[in-house]
Simulated scan of single mutants.
Amino acid sequence: MLDELIKKNRSYRKFAQVTIKCDEIKKILEILRFVPSARNAQPLKYIASCNKEKNEQIFSTLKWAGYLTDWNGPDKTQKPSAYIVILQDKSISNDNFVLTDAGIALQTILLKSVEMGFGGCTIAAIDKPRLSSILNLKENLEILYVVAIGKPAETIEIIDVKDDIKYYRINDIHYVPKRSLSELIYAIIE
């Protein structure tokens, strides 16, 4: 079952226009209470938005799909239904261990979203000062990532890497090259 969730978990960038209730997002956030944290510091905080107006403001601070230079992101009929903003509370921890925590949280958010019939996309290309202002964040809170969540409305195909690892689109199919297992394994020591 975990294998299937991982294989369905793609970086979706086009979404069907469905409503995601905040109670559904709370289910995703609830599971984050149980994930590991370096030194058990638990320095991550989250802001969830299911509000259309606030979602528009968040959307305006994001850059989508860096390799697709001729695409500016989802159009108004393809935008996500919700967002989770991942924050570092520097008053709890201000070290690089937070990136490990954030990676665990990101994967958990995305896998739980897939389990619930949604999909997501992790975004790090953010106008952080502007989004901080929009969200009225205190100085101790730093934006790390934004996760867009919605009902996927695109086809994504995994293919083997040939010459390049850059994802691309042909005829509205999003192709994602992945390295072979033999390229990933440096050594197995028996």
Rank of each mutant, 00 (worst) to 15 (best):
M1H: 05
M1A: 05
D3L: 12
D3F: 12
D3V: 09
L5G: 01
I6K: 04
K7A: 06
K7T: 06
K8W: 05
K8E: 07
K14V: 05
F15L: 02
Q17R: 09
V18H: 14
K21R: 11
D23I: 03
K26Y: 09
K27H: 07
I28L: 09
I31A: 02
L32Y: 01
R33C: 01
R33V: 05
F34Y: 15
P36V: 06
N40S: 09
N40M: 13
A41Q: 11
Q42S: 09
Q42R: 15
Q42F: 12
P43Q: 07
P43S: 07
K45L: 05
Y46N: 00
S49A: 10
E53P: 01
K54V: 13
N55D: 08
N55T: 04
Q57V: 06
I58K: 03
I58V: 11
F59P: 01
S60G: 01
T61C: 15
T61E: 04
L62T: 03
K63I: 05
G66V: 09
L68G: 03
L68C: 05
D70H: 05
D70L: 05
W71F: 05
N72M: 05
G73S: 02
G73P: 04
P74T: 06
D75W: 00
D75Y: 03
K79L: 02
P80I: 02
Y83C: 00
Y83W: 05
I84G: 01
I84E: 01
I86Y: 08
L87K: 01
L87S: 03
L87N: 01
D89T: 02
K90T: 15
S91F: 04
S93A: 08
S93Y: 10
D95G: 15
V98M: 07
L99Y: 15
T100C: 09
D101M: 12
D101R: 09
A102L: 11
G103I: 12
A105P: 12
A105S: 14
I109E: 01
L111G: 13
K112Q: 15
S113Y: 12
V114I: 15
E115A: 14
E115H: 10
E115T: 10
M116L: 15
G117Y: 13
G117T: 10
C121H: 11
T122E: 11
I123Y: 12
I123Q: 07
A124D: 12
A125Y: 14
I126H: 08
S132A: 15
L137E: 07
L137D: 04
Y145C: 02
V146G: 00
V146K: 09
V146Q: 08
V147F: 15
V147I: 15
G150V: 00
G150R: 00
P152G: 07
A153P: 07
T155E: 13
I159F: 04
K162C: 06
D164Q: 12
I165E: 12
I165S: 10
I165M: 11
K166F: 09
Y167F: 10
Y167H: 15
I170W: 11
N171K: 14
D172S: 14
D172I: 05
Y175N: 03
P177H: 10
R179E: 10
R179P: 00
R179Y: 13
L181K: 14
S182T: 11
S182C: 01
Y186M: 07
A187Q: 14
A187S: 15
